[in-house]
């Protein structure tokens, strides 16, 4: 028996969310009294692989197979399921990102397991297995009971803290068999904002809405994100108007985020917007309208014109950061 985590790598590198995932899976492994195994697909150098041992993994299995050069949910989930079976995994745990969600759903079907997506804390009980997730797009939470022998989970990003637990980690290759019928889809070209911090991973998000009047006014928003070491996101109309790229849209129909600090500039605070951001630890709203609903959800607020407040705030933040 074991706990298996799928630790995705991005061009051979792991991320903060990888270590959150391992930390979470390690706690489950301890509760279940078993070992934690990590699985990754593709080339990763030994130094990077060894880093997984800092968060409780006693073994990492590396799958190298040229049929897995492109990310295809069908072939990847086939590989992961084969490894899960070989390792007698009772828990298979993924990050709840775009690829992790798809893989977890498929893997659960292949393994005849039950799946709870987007868990946000450790199970409150192992027998029966009960774990909490968000429901109604962030407007509520629900406890799910999983009553299958094999349990598949995906962990929300920014919802579990990293816990160090250094282990001597064994690095091994695992072989899998990928059938041609497991492919069926062929990625053609990729467009990636290289090096940009993902919205779902950032600890600070500076978000702006229609109150900013036009895309030419985002300089000060980007500047604030840079000063704070965070990244930018936006309300839905801003993405719909193509002032900002679609992947920046947060809310009920966009990305659901949970940073430490969420700064909302010129965003009214519609219920659909708040649903996606209300798990943020601290929220700040800057709005000209003292009646803006965002002030009911925010921890701190400034009633004022963003075009005056934000440049001043940026100066004050810079001064603070300079110590």
């Amino acid at each position: 028996m074991s706990v298996l985590t799928y630790t995705e790598n991005w061009d051979g590198k792991f991320k903060k969310s990888t270590y959150e995932l391992l930390s979470y899976a390690n706690e489950i492994a301890k509760k279940a009294g078993t070992e934690l195994i990590a699985l990754t697909i593709g080339e990763v150098d030994n130094e990077e692989l060894k880093s997984l041992g800092n968060y409780g993994a006693s073994k990492v299995l590396v799958v190298k197979n040229e049929k897995l050069n492109d990310f295809i949910a069908k072939s990847y989930s086939s590989a992961i399921s084969q490894v899960a079976q070989a390792q007698d995994a009772k828990f298979v745990i993924f990050a709840n990102n775009v690829s992790g969600r798809a893989l977890a759903a498929r893997t659960s079907v292949k393994l005849d397991g039950g799946f709870v997506p987007g868990v946000m804390q450790l199970p409150s009980s192992i027998e029966p297995f009960v774990v909490r997730k968000k429901a109604y797009s962030g407007k509520a939470f629900a406890d799910f009971e999983l009553n299958s022998d094999i349990k598949v989970l995906s962990l929300n990003q920014n919802s579990f803290k990293i816990i160090e637990d250094a282990k001597e980690i064994a690095i091994e290759e695992a072989s899998v068999e990928i059938k041609d019928t497991d492919l069926g889809a062929k990625p053609q070209s990729v467009e990636k904002a290289s090096g940009k911090l993902l919205i779902t991973e950032a600890e600070t998000l500076v978000s702006a809405g229609r109150g900013l009047k036009g895309p030419e006014n985002w300089g000060m928003v980007e500047e604030m994100a840079e000063i704070l070491g965070g990244t930018t996101c936006c309300s839905r109309p801003v993405a719909d108007l193509e002032w900002r790229p679609h992947e920046e849209h947060v809310g009920q129909t966009g990305k659901v985020v949970a940073p430490n600090l969420y700064i909302a500039i010129g965003i009214s605070g519609a219920i659909q917007h708040l649903a996606g951001v209300n798990s943020s630890k601290v929220m700040v709203a800057i709005n000209t309208d003292e009646e803006a609903p965002f002030f009911e959800a925010a921890d701190y607020g400034i009633i004022g014109d963003a075009f005056k407040v934000v440049p001043k705030l940026n100066e004050a933040l810079k001064k603070f950061k300079a110590g």
Partner: peptide, 20 residues
């Protein structure tokens, strides 16, 4: 294989602190 036992609403936030 899965069932929902219990729902919760988010904790009510304290009042917003306004800064000039």
């Amino acid at each position: 294989k899965t069932k929902t036992n219990q729902f919760y609403l988010p904790e009510v936030k304290g009042a917003c602190t306004f800064v000039d």
